[in-house]
Write a protein that binds this DNA or RNA. Structure first.
Lengths: 206, 206
DNA sequence: GAACTATACGACCGATCGTGCTATCTTGTC
DNA sequence: GACAAGATAGCACGATCGGTCGTATAGTTC
């Protein structure tokens, strides 16, 4: 439309602060919830004034949306990207599953899977926050479905199977592992998920 | 310690109010969350004054605990009891699953399964509220496990299977159906859960 | 109908919520 | 080193939070 020939640039310390805020926000939201997380509490947690923090966002909803974006990037970097690095077919499908379980065990988010934690909170509150969360979850399910289809194309999974259905079932195991692991953080919860997935698609290739 | 020989009796209108409060609270908590549900909001919702409502409970935590108890009774009456009425073995296992899916479809709780909704909120907050929720969930998983064991005893499921593992897998399908149904209330979410369970234990007997 | 008390209400408390406004630093550019 | 703009803190606001208190009402028992 037009030009802003001169400065609209953020400052270096500003972007550093913003990153720190959103990083803490994404992690804290899995414990306090997206709505339960208060501006003041978040500011205290990262040693900043409430108004100083708030100056980075126009509203709490914008903070929530930015938090979701950051959580999505973390999830992508910790789970989706390394999982997708595996060769297509069964290896990739198993890699995605194992990376998900591993990110639980690593405690990437203190309250378990960010999107599982947050979806339960906002699933009945229409608005852009809910919409964006559903989008990211849809992308994840899509990645699983694609991996299933890849395994079918490679002849490792019966092509007669409904790929979306199988992705649903695998995701069910992962989500259940997440819930069980948050309740009682032990290897058992993760192992049960693994065993469930193995029952669905066979043992991990090696 | 001492005797209160005479009147400590609640009044009839009191118990009616208390029931109405807890009934609304259990249902609203699946939308607003156990912490997100405010005393004032709940009072407005049932057309009562905040202080009048609050007089029934010593603290918000006690209201939450009573709410959980009420939700447990509802869940029991709507799902566990009718499911357990089916004959032991596969019929009962399938009945429990179908009753769970049916109570989602019936919209018994506007935010889906009460305990799934609320567990995600309190799973990282130690205290009596979390403890009680985990207990009820444990009872539910126990009922599923018992039903699996019953089906094994009847020779309908391979006795070599780990009953707890199979209960985990069935519960995973149900929880995933719940999550999907809350996101998009359509028969597809329920049907996917059914198909997943059928893959685990075979089609429902008739 | 009198006496008792569970119930319900309105007013109010201190704390905290999200959100602005303003002044003071800090950083990057010339 | 001056200067503009970005970043942060201080302060205050209206609303709402969980919670308390005194009081009026209505159900129960005799």
């Amino acid at each position: 439309m037009n030009a802003q020939p001169t400065t609209r640039r953020p400052r270096s310390d500003g972007v550093r602060s913003r990153r720190a805020i959103l990083d803490a926000s994404a992690r804290l939201a899995t414990v306090e919830g997206l709505n339960g997380l208060s501006i003041g509490g978040l500011a205290d947690h990262i040693g900043m004034s409430k108004s100083g923090l708030y100056a980075h966002f126009k509203s709490k909803e914008e903070l929530q949306l930015a938090t979701i974006e950051t959580a999505g990037e973390i999830f992508n970097a910790e789970v989706v990207a390394p999982g997708s690095a595996a060769p297509p077919g069964l290896p990739r499908l198993w890699a995605l599953s194992e990376e998900f379980l591993a990110h639980l065990e690593r405690g990437v988010f203190p309250g378990g899977c960010f999107f599982a934690s947050v979806a339960a909170e906002v699933d009945t509150r229409p608005g852009p926050v809910r919409d964006r969360i559903f989008e990211v979850i849809g992308d994840w399910v899509g990645a699983l479905t694609d991996a299933v289809a890849g395994a079918q194309a490679a002849g490792e999974i019966d092509p007669a199977e409904d790929a979306e259905q199988l992705a649903f079932e695998i995701d069910a195991m992962l989500l259940m592992s997440n819930a069980a692991y948050v309740m009682e953080p032990s290897a058992e919860a993760l192992e049960r998920g693994r065993r469930g997935i193995a029952k669905l698609i066979g043992p991990p290739p090696r």
